[in-house]
Design a binder for these strands. Structure first.
Lengths: 195, 195
DNA sequence: ACCGTATATGAACGGATGTTCAGATAGAAC
DNA sequence: GTTCTATCTGAACATCCGTTCATATACGGT
């Protein structure tokens, strides 16, 4: 697996990020060394610095890529006609998108405290933008009488927290299929925001 | 703040745990050094080893104390007569107990992966015991027709995840009082498990 | 007043850390 | 086939890590 000197490599960058992603998710940012990441790629530690200015930027890049992916993927969806359908779409999208990226998700909110303040601010803004898209659904539904919640902000956070819980226990091939899980959570979410 | 040699100290142990708790919660287990903890207590690093065999045991002790506290405090509550009231009690207890111990809560599920396998197993068992007490409420209520959930296990995890979300944003003195928060979450939980 | 012991110091251990950089190398361009 | 340059190596840097231990100290018991 050892790479040879001088070989061009447009793929070393992605491989470094993939290795870092896996290791950060598995052991935590602080517990993973640059040498570990380099070893996983089959390269010496010094070589990493051709692709990232430092360890911190590597973490930030992973989080930022993930959040951009989340936002742009959601933005591309066709908006349903009713608020109830929009909420249903959000629930399904959220569960599936996140279950497909367990490592990214894990890092995205376990390693927030390891970001510098500026980096943290940027990631936080993206997260809030995503939450806002859910809150907008709840607000719209509330206006037309489809939903009944005491506070749309709290309801937003409650729904997302509930959905995020899925990532902590769901494993493909377990007792329940993804469709079943999605159905059950949709039932609970729907009931929690309707009269 | 520097302690003098030879001085007896039944309070150094607790002070070490308190300092470790705060630092682990703030920066993460892997990112905190024994020397940092010692400095916070006003002692040299070597002195810590009069109170813990190693860093890992310090983490385990913090988590174990917290879970024992959680379980025994909940066990002391008087059980309400109906399932609905029992659930209401659980929601209120969970929110208040955890909001009073933000550092312990943060550690208890951010640092699970830094436990040795045996230690992890023990903490996990305690966590499951707590979850089981909620699932029992849901099962009982389901039997007598007070609740209607597709799967009590999933509903248990969903409810706890939703409640845990409160810890990530609630701050005393904010827009909403603790009573209001509790009321809103109780409304959502109740609706999510009733027809 | 003195002793015994619990408690703390401070130096030391081997090893790991993030990062830098001069030098080596291999593929691309001509 | 030579040159150029992006890429990687390997060693070095200063610093930190968890843990151990001989030594010093001050309090509790007598």
């Amino acid at each position: 697996m050892a790479r040879t000197q001088g070989s061009h490599s447009d793929i070393t960058g992605p491989r470094i990020r993939k290795a870092a992603l896996r290791l950060f998710a598995q052991q935590g940012y602080a517990a993973v060394s640059m040498r570990q990441i380099a070893a996983e790629v089959g390269v010496q530690a010094g070589a990493l610095y051709n692709y990232t200015p430092d360890k911190q930027s590597l973490l930030y890049r992973l989080m930022n890529d993930h959040m951009q992916d989340l936002l742009s993927t959601y933005a591309k969806l066709e908006r349903p006609a009713t608020a109830l359908e929009a909420l249903h779409q959000f629930v399904g999208f959220h569960i599936r998108f996140h279950l497909e990226r367990p490592d990214e998700v894990f890092i995205a909110y376990m390693e927030l405290r390891n970001l510098t303040p500026e980096n943290f601010g940027e990631i936080e803004a993206l997260r809030r933008a995503y939450e806002d898209s859910l809150e907008q659904i709840l607000k719209d539904g509330q206006e037309v009488g489809a939903f009944l919640v005491a506070d749309t902000k709290m309801a937003t956070l409650a729904v997302i927290a509930m959905l995020n819980g899925v990532m902590t226990w769901y494993r493909a091939g377990g007792r329940l299929s993804l469709d079943e899980v999605e159905q059950v959570y949709w039932d609970m979410v729907r009931r929690s925001v309707t009269a």
